[in-house]
Nucleic acid binder design. Structure first.
Lengths: 231, 231
DNA sequence: TCAAAAGTGTTAAGTTTACACCCATGA
DNA sequence: TCATGGGTGTAAACTTAACACTTTTGA
């Protein structure tokens, strides 16, 4: 009786796909692979994989990310489930998309090479197969909303960063210029951003103070953008 | 070769679960069923069902909603995929949750009875089985955010409504009191809310003007709440 | 010496909040 | 006649947006 309740129903392949965000020289980037194996050889896609029997969706996403980057403990959020009947022409596969925020320089370049993966600037993406472009758009919209409300941008930066880097990160994600003085004023009010006494000499001749993120500090509104969300 | 690519992977039961919101006498409510059949007879749960072979996730959610309410063309949003390995103790089932906003009075009461379903005030819910309470919480949080940004509240009201009804709906969803004059000031600025010349005499002795929602009007920021999102 | 990025405050405009009374009606 | 919900405007507090110049230093 119980077993019939389940077993009369269809079963499905389940995949996870990862929208992997990174930030480099003022550009928001995605880690994409150009598949050098069948099926769909030559096509650009997100990094994905099938969910295994004894694995949660979240764990599957972590595994896929780990396989490509060598990183664990990465900030990830679910984007949603994509379940159009014909989204994958090869078979009925339902996919759950996740986005990840990480520091490009921490990635394992060996693995990246193995998978034929490349960091592509988000404003200059190739066409992606299946519904992967739709996943990217949705992830990008979620990230944009979330970064205005929660201090998650730090995941894309090294542990020490200058305020110019932080600002250009926000500008890249929000897609608009931010006033430098207003931005710094807000940073000063956020207790979870701490000035260190170290100075970065790479980004400018004069040098700029390095800041760090302090998770434990402050449970206030961790908001580095002004005003209501833009439409 | 192609077939092996897929077929070496595990397959899963896929379900959809619906968080069905309604609004009645100042209370935000959920349509829940107390299962009068096995498995899990007697337990309270969301209305759910298995995804079928030739059905998208969205269509499955619509079908499940239609079966219980007799309504189609209902406003629905995906909440997310829930995929903990042991979330369903009977079998490995991954579920995709959707929330729906509808007018309680439009529901088919016959069907509701058949399924042993009941409208329960959201602040007074029974324990729900599996991870359904988690789904409800997530849906509620999404709704709260979304209603502050987009004009979706109308889906919970009859096509003609008073401003007091609209305000109490917002208060129920946001969980806080709103100043009457400030609320009405904002309504006046929203071109998609139209005053009609009809008057409701049921809610008060004096009578109150009925308003209607005009989808086509206005592409401005359709925001009926002030300020940034609360933390 | 100059190009390039770092750093720094003030004011005006706009938005949000707080607040109290009269009106119309049916019971 | 009174209890109930409907309807209305203004001023203070706060938040955001706009804006320009000086500093440091390596090339």
């Amino acid at each position: 009786m119980l077993s019939t309740f389940y077993s009369q129903n269809a079963k499905f392949f389940l995949a996870v796909d990862c929208i992997i965000f990174g930030f480099q020289r003022g550009n928001l980037k995605l880690l994409l692979q150009q598949r050098h194996f069948e099926p769909f050889k030559g096509e650009w896609s997100l990094m994905g994989g099938f969910v295994q029997e004894n694995e949660s969706l979240d764990d599957a996403a972590k595994r896929v990310l780990y396989d490509l980057t060598g990183l664990s403990e990465v900030y990830m959020e679910q984007v949603g489930a994509f379940g159009a009947v014909d989204r994958d022409p090869g078979a009925r596969v339902v996919s759950v998309a996740y986005y990840a925020l990480l520091d490009i320089d921490k990635c394992n370049h060996e693995l990246k090479h193995q998978y034929n993966a490349h960091w592509e600037s988000i404003d200059n993406l190739p066409n992606l197969f299946f519904d992967h472009s739709e996943m990217v758009e949705k992830a990008r919209a979620l990230l944009k909303k979330k970064i205005s409300r929660e201090p998650i941008g730090f995941n894309l930066l090294p542990s020490l960063f200058t305020l110019s880097q932080l600002q250009s990160l926000y500008e890249a994600i929000l897609g608009e210029a931010i006033d430098k003085r207003n931005f710094r004023k807000r940073v000063n009010e956020m207790s979870f951003i701490e000035k260190t006494d170290q100075i970065d000499k790479l980004g400018s001749k004069r040098g700029a103070y390095l800041y760090k993120f302090n998770k434990t500090r402050g449970r206030q509104t961790p908001c580095l953008t002004a005003g209501r969300d833009k439409p």
